[in-house]
């Protein structure tokens, strides 16, 4: 790791759902501007870990968290942290494309309308924002005549790109992705991956995936989790080729050898 700049740092992070412990003393540092993959068998707590970073876990009433999470150097459980600001900084893309059931145009502006006094946006400004966001995800040419159509009627691949696009006007620093390609076909998957590699650098990506090949293709670093514990965190190539921990080796080879 060349830089010392980390977007996300956790220190002995543990999490319980009721009395079931889903995360055990996870300490991890996610580097700035890179793509970090998060792999591991089903139920090992990948989604849980991801959801800690923008505190959406709290919506379940029975969650207890212990330990420290720092996003861009700031502890997100400090009392002066605003959830609104946190969720602006840390965007999230979900497994199934989930645009809001409103027009493409309104989907892109949905976040902004929550965060800023949306009256202050003029029509031209909003048009520009929408165009810019759609252009960065390579959707502008396809959708420029369909801005008023319902986002849920688009193709899945376009929907998922739109879900990424709607984060961009908020100028997030970190984008969390929970199996963003599992509902897409091979072509859609490649398109989203390509998009990620273009956007990496500007944004820090943390992506959960069940697809080993994908983790290998796109991530710079990779984290292997097992039953709520962080087993190994190394550069992707090293993790796949010379795993240090026998559990990692089992998992990587089971899928890959």
């Amino acid at each position: 790791m060349e830089t010392n700049n980390f977007s996300i740092e956790t220190e002995n992070l543990s999490l319980w759902y009721g009395d079931f412990q889903a995360l055990m003393d996870v300490s991890v540092k996610i580097p700035d501007g890179k793509i970090t993959g998060l792999i591991g068998p089903s139920g090992c707590g990948k989604t849980t870990l991801l959801r800690c970073f923008n505190r959406v876990n709290e919506r379940y009433g029975n969650v207890t968290t212990k330990g420290e999470i720092k996003i861009l150097g700031k502890n997100i459980y400090d009392s002066d942290v605003s959830l609104l600001e946190l969720r602006k900084t840390v965007g999230m893309v979900f497994q199934r494309p989930n645009p809001l059931p409103i027009s493409v145009y309104d989907n892109i502006l949905f976040g902004l309308r929550i965060h800023s006094q949306f009256r202050s946006l003029t029509r031209t400004q909003s048009d520009e924002i929408v165009e810019e966001a759609l252009t960065s995800v390579f959707l502008w040419d396809d959708l420029k005549d369909k801005l008023k159509t319902r986002a849920t009627s688009l193709q899945l691949e376009q929907q998922q790109k739109l879900c990424i696009a709607r984060l961009l006007p908020l100028k997030p620093k970190i984008i969390l992705m929970d199996e963003p390609c599992s509902a897409l076909d091979a072509k859609g998957t490649l398109a989203v991956e390509e998009l990620m590699s273009v956007l990496a650098g500007t944004y820090t990506f943390l992506i959960v995936t069940h697809n080993m090949a994908q983790a290998r293709r796109i991530s710079d670093e990779c984290i292997y989790m097992f039953l709520g514990e962080l087993i190994e965190h190394r550069e992707t190539q090293a993790l796949f080729e010379t795993p240090e921990h026998p559990k990692t080796a089992d998992y990587v080879q089971m899928r890959y050898g």
Partner: peptide, 22 residues
């Protein structure tokens, strides 16, 4: 759709907003 609701929350929407808009 739970995931749409989550997406709205993750974008920072308040509860009333999600109820009214979605």
């Amino acid at each position: 759709d739970l995931s749409v609701r989550e997406a709205a929350y993750a974008l920072g929407a308040k509860r009333m907003r999600v109820i009214a808009d979605h």
